[in-house]
Write a protein that binds this DNA or RNA. Structure first.
Length: 303
DNA sequence: CTCCGGTCAG
DNA sequence: CTGACTGGAG
């Protein structure tokens, strides 16, 4: 298969079929791109849209977010899920201000060093915000490349170096064209080459897809190891955080005790939130979101 | 490798 | 009811 043909076909398809998403509007800054990418980690586009708009309206720059306490970021995150991302995005804003004068860095190395920015997000920002030529490999791209090139119906659970190499080989030489192709690969995986029910009939590379050529059936088992939610610490963390999010300032432990009956699990979940930096003890058997309200006053000394 | 939210289509 | 969703970090 010709790499050139593959990227060209998918890019041309993308130009005609791309969803109209706010972070794809020409001229959006690197900060907006970064915010969108972090929100989109493990979260579907349709749920990110409103949160993205609200977030950027309130914090249009890294400096604006860095100036507010983490508690505000956690609240604004709402029910997007994985609230540690809100914490890390706040930490990331602080790091951008401290290390890069408030400007999102454009070098891959510097991006990777930021909190909450990993292999995928760093390359996404470098490519989509700065037009650089990097393989941008998320779960969609892994699946598309795995099918089209290797002929495998499913990719592995995580991005490996080999995935980056395989994807890089499909990219056009011109940086701008490569960035466009990366967005196109992702869109193809999100809309056409989906995990369970691929729409091969409308796929622009159906005729040169190794998986189709192999005649293999659709993937059998789950793409990812099943994750339980009900009854897990994650659910309890979510319940605890919901109470803290809706309160202003410290919350008595007694109120947190009401969200879950199992003392052991509830305590473990709360301790985990503290360890992650999302929650902090506020004295007198109370807890609050990180940095919510005034600093903890030092114990008053008896005169 | 495991943990980490929350929602929704099938 | 399960699987999937533009991953990252310990």
């Amino acid at each position: 298969m010709s790499e050139h043909t593959f990227a060209t076909r998918v890019s041309r398809w993308y130009e005609r079929n791309a969803r109209d998403l706010p972070w794809r509007v020409p001229g959006v800054g690197a900060w907006a791109i970064l915010v969108s990418e972090v929100m989109l980690q493990q979260t579907p586009v349709v749920r990110v849209l409103p949160a993205y708009e609200a977030w950027l309206a309130r914090w249009p720059t890294p400096a604006a977010l860095a100036a507010d306490p983490p508690a505000e970021a956690i609240r604004m995150w709402g029910r997007l899920g994985y609230p540690r991302r809100a914490m890390r995005l706040h930490d990331c804003a602080v790091a951008i201000v401290e290390r890069h004068g408030g400007e999102v860095p454009d070098r891959l190395e510097q991006l990777l060093a930021l909190p909450g920015v990993g292999t995928y997000t760093a390359r996404a920002v470098a490519a989509f915000a700065y037009g650089q030529r990097h393989p941008v490999v998320d779960t969609n791209v892994r699946r598309v490349v795995s099918r089209a090139v290797a002929g495998e119906p499913d990719a592995g659970p995580a991005t490996r170096p080999a995935d980056l190499v395989a994807t890089e080989e499909l990219l056009p030489a011109e940086p701008a064209e490569a960035a466009l192709a990366s967005a196109a690969f992702m869109e193809l995986g999100a809309v056409v080459c989906t995990a369970r029910s691929p729409r091969c009939a409308v796929c622009p590379v159906e005729s040169i897809c190794a998986w189709r050529a192999s005649g293999q059936a659709a993937p059998a088992g789950p793409t990812r190891r099943p994750q339980r939610y009900a009854g897990t610490d994650r659910q309890v963390r979510g319940l605890l955080l919901a109470v803290l999010r809706e309160s202003s300032g410290p919350v008595p432990r007694q109120r947190l005790d009401q969200v879950w009956t199992d003392d052991v699990q509830r305590s473990r979940a709360l301790a985990g939130l503290v360890t992650d930096g999302l929650v902090e003890p506020a004295g007198g058997e109370t807890f609050r979101l990180a940095g919510d309200g005034p600093a903890i006053p030092a114990p008053a000394l008896d005169a």
